[in-house]
Amino acid sequence: MTLWTFVLAVETVVEAGAEAAESSGGLFNFDATLPIMAAQFLLLVAILNAIFFKPLTKAIDDRSDYVRGNIAEAKERLGKAQSLAQQYEQELSATRRQVKDRLLLAQVDANKIRNQRIAEAMAESQAQVVTAKAEIAQQKQVASDSLNTQTAALSRQILEKLLGDLVHS
């Protein structure tokens, strides 16, 4: 059993006998296989061109066109969106400025009104103070008048008490 594993048998290029006479055989045996092979290879090229290369090349080209178109469209949209965002931002800042202006205006108005009110209130209170002072003065006058009369009466009484009848005389 071990022997056959080492056996190398190569059938030689040219078979002896009738076979060699009939067909020469051999590695470099050129015959009609060559033109037939060439013809069927050209046929294969034609067939593959029709059912493999053309449709798949077209598919790949179409796809890359599609992808390129999509990318261009997306870029365009992105640009549009960016310009829109910019526009909105501008509008927003304009509105903000407007609001600030109005706020400022309103503050100014409010200040004016407050000052006015304060001034009015102060004027009113001053007037009240003045009238109150006048009243006080008047009442003081009245009081001092009555005091004067009472003083006179009292002093008369005191005189009468001190001097008695001398007064009447």
């Binding site: 056959w4 056996v7 190569v10 059938e11 030689t12 055989g25 590695l27 045996n29």
Partner: peptide, 17 residues
């Protein structure tokens, strides 16, 4: 044509058509 052994499993055929 010197090794006249028999090959049991496989044979090499070169240049035969």
């Amino acid at each position: 044509q010197t090794l006249n052994f028999e090959t049991p499993l496989a044979a090499l055929e070169v240049g035969k058509h």
